[in-house]
Design a protein around this nucleic acid. Structure first.
Lengths: 142, 142
DNA sequence: TCAGAAATCAAGAATGATTCTTATTTTTAT
DNA sequence: ATAAAAATAAGAATCATTCTTGATTTCTGA
């Protein structure tokens, strides 16, 4: 492995730790890539992007980093059917719209103040810990 | 292959065709299984269940049947993260709740008359062709 | 009714995203 | 500075799903 000894000191403008997760060189670049592009990339996409900065990084490490970031609540996974998992650094509760004409994936916010019970018939006693809301369609601009 | 010559006549109480899809012996049993149990089974689950009636059926055929039924709008796929795909014969617009204490998956109806724009900030010009709404959590019964 | 065409099926191989394993390197705590 | 713990790279393994192929069944039109 190439020397990583400057790992923790290189980036003075970046926290050493987020939500209790140590920001290693690899995790930092993976997170940076997600924040900079915001295109809901797959692990493969992130891998290719981060390679410019860290040419020796492996795909397995990208998966490890994405998993660690997800487990610590720093990013979220986004699933469309059983396609490759995508990642999103937007932590606000929101859904995702896949525009089938452009292929782009957009964040879709919930109306402010709305609660699940306002639009869903949930069984009584339900506690929801995780929500995934995905839409497909097209956008007509004129 | 075991003779299938009684294929189309065996079930007099079952339509020969649904939404333009010919109901073969295999498709009929797959669909029957989904309708009878309503537990959102995986392809593997359906395979094991249908084997009682059609011992010679293959997993690939179950996948083919589920795909054909899905393509003809007779059933729907249900996805939780990247777990095995599950299948649902309820065609009403609805979401799915995975109860993490029991492992059960429940259909969750939308409030009657509600529209997406009522609770979502969709970009103008959006046409939604497909919705997937999945929740995880627990239910407290007392 | 019968022959050829089209559709369906079974079985197993192939695919592809993700996870796992292991050896190495880096970081942390003493 | 050193031993223990954590993280990484590389490639093998896994597993749901799809694909391929040859056999079987169903359909269509003489």
């Amino acid at each position: 492995m190439v020397s990583n000894s400057d790992n923790s000191n290189e980036q003075e403008d970046f926290p050493q730790e987020i939500n209790g997760l140590r920001m290693t060189r690899q995790r930092r670049e993976v997170y940076r890539s997600l924040m900079a592009k915001r295109v809901h990339p797959t692990a493969q996409d992130v891998f290719l992007d981060v390679k410019d900065k860290l040419p020796q990084i492996s795909l397995a490490t990208v998966y490890n980093c994405l998993e660690a970031l997800t487990q610590h609540g720093i990013i979220r996974q986004v699933h469309f059917d059983r396609e490759s998992c995508r990642y999103c650094p937007n932590l606000h509760e929101h859904g995702h719209f896949h525009d089938q004409s452009t292929g782009k994936i957009l964040d879709v916010a919930f109306k402010p103040g709305i609660r699940l019970e306002d639009f869903l018939d949930l069984p009584p006693g339900t506690t929801v810990s995780n929500i995934e809301f995905t839409l497909r369609g097209t956008i007509v601009t004129h």
